[in-house]
Amino acid sequence: MNQTDNAVKASLFVTCIIDQFFPEVGEAAVRVLRRLGVDVEFDQSQTCCGQPAFNNGFWNDAKPTARRLVDSYEGEGNVVVPSGSCAAMLRVFYNELFHDEQDTLRRAQALAPHVFEFTEFVSDVLGAENREGLFHATKPMRVTYHESCHLKRELGVDLQPRSLIKSLPGVELVEMPQAEVCCGFGGTFSVKYADISAAMLNDKIANIQSANVDAVVAGDMSCLMHIGGGLEKQEAGIRAIHIAQLLDERI
């Protein structure tokens, strides 16, 4: 992508869930990107990608905010999103949402190649794993990686987070069984079908516990809100942290 590190610019689409519930994750992402030499921008007009309404069938209600996002980021260069799901919304699902709105569709498709999920950007574009002495050791830690569904299956990102975790000194990546299986969140699915969702969550938690780790790491705060909320309810003593936080603690 960019030949000289110093020239890399990126605009952070922080996502509504991080903005409103987990601002510390956004801060961690900013620190990591800056430490990697990225000139980080934040467009204050951003709100939400529209996924909550879109997934529930309210496409007409999702359009205004999605359209505004396209307006904001069009021609602005790299957009980094610390969420596989929201990045997939921009890159994949805007094709569905704007199927009947040719002009916006064309602009969304032009924007799509500039949209990066956080680990994709940090690994593929910035090559953080290969930078000598970037990460420093802290207290040894065992972590397992949960594959967020949209990150893995819509964006095809599964190696980058793992290679980033493995490059951290003192951090051991322990694979859990069924790491690629959904945690049961699914947005309003977890409210509308709370019991099915909880049954899926309980399997996820059992798998996390079987890895005997200090923390479960993922690239999406929606999954982590769900998994973390379950771990806390069960007083499991295992943290649920975003990969930006794991990197930030060691950079």
Partner: peptide, 8 residues
């Protein structure tokens, strides 16, 4: 609606 849209 009874799907998390996980894509499996």
């Amino acid at each position: 609606f009874a799907s998390t849209l996980c894509g499996a």
